[in-house]
């Protein structure tokens, strides 16, 4: 105790002068002066003075500008060359400053947005695996609202996987897209479906008074795409009609049922349930059908020609659209000519 007291005494001793100051000035300004004490050059006072001066000047300049703006309507002579120049310079400087500020804030916002999004990506690998498996298992509990995880890592990765699979399907089927790349089309299709359908179903759910948030909807539909990924990955590589229909019904059906069950458990009333779930199920199943046949048709065509007895496989007559078109055109023309002649 005595030692600490001694230390305290030795500490306070050199600051005795300051204590006097505090006594003189009063306790209100003591803190500020202590801060300034570190700066022996006293530049902070100068800074303060400068700042004050600058603020005053700016105020004056603004007042002047306001005055000139007011006066211009009454007499144009007041607006001398000097005033014009100053105003122009100031305007340009203002513009540049504003543009710079906008850019900076945009860049800053990007990073801020990353921080905002971070909680939605807060998952463990095991959780993702479990949710992927759960997306295939419809729960029959519809009396109590089912738990839907609001998380975006799984859905994002599933959408990117779907993009890759779609790209693969487009390449192998030899799809040609005019005015665009395969990549852009694949990304557009997948993200468009995910975001578009989620928003639409969310809107319908809002109309039907369903208890679901946009985030939950995105997560639900995103994990629902797992079934699509599996089905498309298999059927783009193994070309059997029957296999696709079986997988479409079983895997696609299971993932759709899972989403439907979750939505049913969060909606009250028969008609709202029917509308909401019917819309979602139809969209989801038809999207899988579309993805399969839109980027798979040509391979199917090749298979058909291979299976067909008469057509040699190399010729590809059946799929040559322009040929078919000309044939149809010519037949139509000839028929028309015959009719016309009669």
């Amino acid at each position: 105790m005595s030692a600490s007291e001694g230390a305290k005494n030795t500490n306070t001793e050199p600051w005795g002068g300051f204590d006097d100051n505090i006594m003189i000035q009063g306790s209100g300004s003591a803190v500020i002066d202590m801060e300034n004490m570190d700066d022996t050059s006293g530049s902070s006072f100068e800074d303060m003075g400068e700042m004050h001066q600058r603020m005053k000047e700016e105020e004056e300049v603004e007042a002047e500008a306001a005055a000139t703006e007011d006066d211009t309507g009454e007499d144009g002579e007041f607006l001398g060359m000097k005033g014009l120049k100053g105003q122009l310079g100031r305007q340009v400087a203002d513009e540049v400053w504003k543009a710079g500020k906008r850019e900076a804030s945009k860049a800053f916002n990007l990073y801020a947005n990353i921080d905002i999004l971070r909680p939605y990506f807060d998952v463990e690998p095991i959780q993702v695996r479990n949710r992927l498996i759960e997306s295939m298992i419809p729960l029959k509990m519809i009396n109590f609202p089912q738990k839907i995880a609001g998380e975006l890592y799984g859905p994002m990765m599933l959408v990117f996987t779907l993009v890759a699979i779609l790209l693969h399907g487009m390449k192998t089927s030899g799809t040609v897209i005019r005015e665009g790349t395969l990549m852009g089309t694949a990304i557009g299709t997948c993200f468009g479906y995910w975001l578009g359908t989620s928003s639409f179903i969310y809107f319908v759910a809002y109309l039907c008074n369903s208890q679901i948030t946009m985030l939950q909807m995105l997560s639900l539909l995103g994990y629902g795409l797992f079934g699509h990924c599996v089905v498309l990955f298999i059927t783009y590589n193994v070309h059997f009609h029957s296999l696709f229909y079986i997988l479409w019904l079983v895997i696609g059906g299971l993932s759709t049922l899972r989403m439907v069950a979750a939505l049913v458990s969060r909606t009250v009333g028969k008609t709202p349930r029917l509308i909401l779930c019917g819309t979602l199920a139809a969209l989801h199943m038809l999207f899988l059908l579309y993805l399969h046949f839109a980027y798979h048709k040509i391979v199917e065509g090749i298979l058909d020609t291979l299976e067909g007895p008469n057509v040699p496989p190399i010729q590809r007559v059946a799929r040559d659209v322009s040929n078919a078109a000309t044939v149809v055109n010519s037949t139509v023309k000839s028929v028309a000519a015959i009719i016309h002649s009669r």
Partner: peptide, 17 residues
């Protein structure tokens, strides 16, 4: 005012010289 405040402050500093 500033001078008044400064004077005792720097007087105190002279002890630490």
């Amino acid at each position: 005012d500033v001078d008044e405040i400064n004077k005792p402050l720097f007087a105190g500093l002279s002890d630490v010289s």
